[in-house]
Design a protein around this nucleic acid. Structure first.
Lengths: 402, 402
DNA sequence: TCCCTTCCCCAAACCGTTTGCGAAGTGGGA
DNA sequence: TCCCACTTCGCAAACGGTTTGGGGAAGGGA
């Protein structure tokens, strides 16, 4: 399908007579058409209603198939056939088609989306659930989702639940009342499965029948830890995401597994759990404070994501610890601000926009019933090395504390 | 209207009989109802169609007014009346109402939004245009918009035009095809006016009939410049926003006016114009580089917004200039990252989420035709002093250059 | 003249609501 | 006893499209 255009518009473009020039010629033809056999017979018998308004131009009201039909002395059905290039259109002579298309263009006819949806039981609309709109992770994914959907003639309704369980429960119902054809969930854990196709980004494995587009956490953990390991870090602190965040457990397990393989010890005092349900750097600020104040001896932190990494860096600075000279910091996601933060963030990049596109594509395929999809679509992470990591300085470690 | 609930749902809650318990009792009543006068007469004459499926329970298909009506031996119209508490409902006996409400609850009837919209010509949907979804300015506004709309039972369709003129032209049409009732434009300049209510945030004055929610730029300029002036800065560089960004000209004029009042000279070599159409710090990076390389002698930069300020800080650092020791930087907006950047940004705060709410409220009022609104709704800025500004150090100024 | 095609287009049903109005039933007054 | 007005109840039509099964007219062949 052509981008941004609806099927019938497409039909317009394909079959518009090349030299159309206003329509007065066509009106002429219409008058001629009705003359030969005798207008009275036609009017009284064959076209009792329509004929009376034969050459009626238009006041200025909404254009419907019926108004067009009255203008052209054709039934709405015929117009619909032509404009949609429906199968039955074969039986309609080119001449009539041209008239229809011309008139539609002339009056800028636009079909009623609601009437069409009602009849065809298709809404070309999907629902998107995000934790928070101001969260850059979610919006980058959303950007990809949107790009793909719009190309396919779809729009989406967004609802942000701010991680409140009652809203996570309620919004899907609200969206289903709006007849969305499917859902995309971004960083959202659903308790009950829905009766529509669902694609989850950074999701949970638990939902029945949902496709999960999810980072290869194992690989991500390897990239992050091997990078720090190769720089020489052995005492590494870890942030564990909150249970409300959908990547949290998986990522944690993978990190721990890789740490074991690298023989990096992870004592409890070097781990901290995120508690806040926000999408600002506050998320990582307090937890990092806590880590530092436990006076544990570490030279690097693996943060849950970039946002919390930025909060952690701030916490380090508040304690007089320099990043990366005293503490190296690794984030996850590579959100937009990461490259321009100071210091710029070393991070595990997720191709967020790409993931959004993939999710949208899969959702549409599922809506169209084109194929059955695996439960999990893995996404490959990438290590982006920037300023926030460096080799540990053995002499300086832990010397400055506030 | 109760939040999140649609009128008819509200009606449910209000008038549900307190002791409803399954509905089997009701089915009994229906059977009794049809018996006294003689079912044959009723079936053949009064209710030719419906009576044949008197006590039909339900397979598992979608529940419509008609299926409910068949079940209850009532017409869809009656059900609709009851469920909506429409005026005409007075004429329907309480007993019937109870039966209807009970059945609706039992089968979890949910009205078809599309059918209703088609009939009532209301869609409870608005369109939102943003430059870019990953832009924190836009999404913070959007968060406010969403919050208000959802409380009022509205949803919104988003389209991001990435500042491409053809898309800015096309998307409104696409959204109007979807029968949105109005538009909210965020940081978007429209060329033609639309035939629907429009509220613009950070908009242009040019659009006919649009309400502009706009920062008091004069006051903002005063806050920014007086702050720098009081710190002792006299040589100040300025970034001018791109012509595609809607606040740009206004903000620039106000800054220049205030500078004149403060007798701050603004020679051309201390001004630079943003050219990129992006929402990342790149926006300000190259322009700041240019300012610095012109080797003009300045101790502070007033950036177009926070995003460009972050880029500018990076440019300063790349040239070995410290912020704020060598150069003070002021931003605009107070986006989410501003407080946690390093150094944290001194900025002119716009209450973005608040602005979104206000815009949504005004739009709904205009849609409902409740009042006529002023063209401009001013928003009051606030100076937030953080780390990126400090008094200039006369000795060190311009000593370090790369 | 009659039948059979072919050509062109339409009527009708349908999607699921809402709403204006008409048909029964009821009570009161003349 | 009859009429009228008023309630009570519920229907039919409309909203604006899509889709399907034909049907009328023209034309050709026997």
């Amino acid at each position: 399908m052509n981008r941004l255009t609806h099927p019938f518009v497409f039909a317009f473009e394909e079959s518009l007579p090349s030299g159309l020039c206003g329509g007065s010629r066509r009106v002429q033809e219409i008058i001629e058409n009705t003359s030969p056999i005798g207008p009275t017979v036609l009017q009284k018998e064959c076209m009792p209603k329509r004929a009376k308004s034969a050459a009626e131009p238009h006041p200025g009201q909404p254009i419907s198939l019926r108004t067009l039909g009255e203008y052209l002395n054709l039934s709405p059905a015929t117009i619909s056939l032509v404009l949609n290039n429906a199968p039955g259109v074969r039986s309609i002579p080119q001449d009539t088609r041209d008239r229809v298309i011309e008139a539609a263009a002339k009056f800028d006819y636009r079909p009623s989306f609601f009437a069409r949806s009602l009849r065809k039981r298709q809404t070309f609309t999907v629902g998107v659930l995000v934790p928070e709109l101001s969260d850059n992770y979610a919006t980058q994914v959303l950007a990809g989702v949107e790009e793909f959907l719009i190309e396919e003639g779809y729009f989406y309704l967004t609802a942000s639940h701010r991680r409140k369980p009652d809203l996570i429960e309620e919004y899907p119902r609200l969206l289903m009342d709006r007849s969305v054809e499917g859902f995309i969930l971004i960083d959202t854990i659903l308790e009950k499965s829905l009766s529509l196709p669902v694609v989850v980004i950074a999701g949970h494995r638990k939902i029945e029948g949902a496709t999960n587009v999810v980072l290869d956490q194992r690989r991500a953990a390897e990239l992050a830890l091997r990078h720090l390991y190769q720089l020489g870090h052995r005492k590494i602190a870890f942030m564990r995401g909150g249970s409300h965040s959908s990547d949290a457990d998986d990522r944690w397990n993978c990190l721990m597994a890789v740490a074991r393989e690298l023989k990096i010890a992870v004592p409890p005092e070097l781990t901290v759990q995120l508690r806040l349900r926000v999408s600002t750097p506050e998320l990582g600020f307090e937890p990092a404070n806590e880590l530092i104040q436990r006076s544990a001896d570490f030279t690097a932190i693996v943060c849950y994501n970039d946002i919390s990494a930025i909060g952690a860096i701030r916490a380090c600075m508040d304690h007089g610890l320099r990043v990366p000279a005293d503490i190296s910091v690794v984030g996850f996601d590579d959100i937009q601000g990461a490259a321009f933060h100071n210091p710029s963030l070393t991070t595990i990049r997720q191709p967020l926009t790409q993931m959004g596109k993939v999710a949208a594509r899969i959702l549409l395929q599922r809506i169209r019933g084109q194929a059955s999809f695996p439960d999990i679509v893995p996404i490959h992470p990438e290590l982006v090395i920037r300023e926030s990591t460096a080799p540990p300085d053995p002499k300086r470690a832990r010397s400055k504390r506030s």
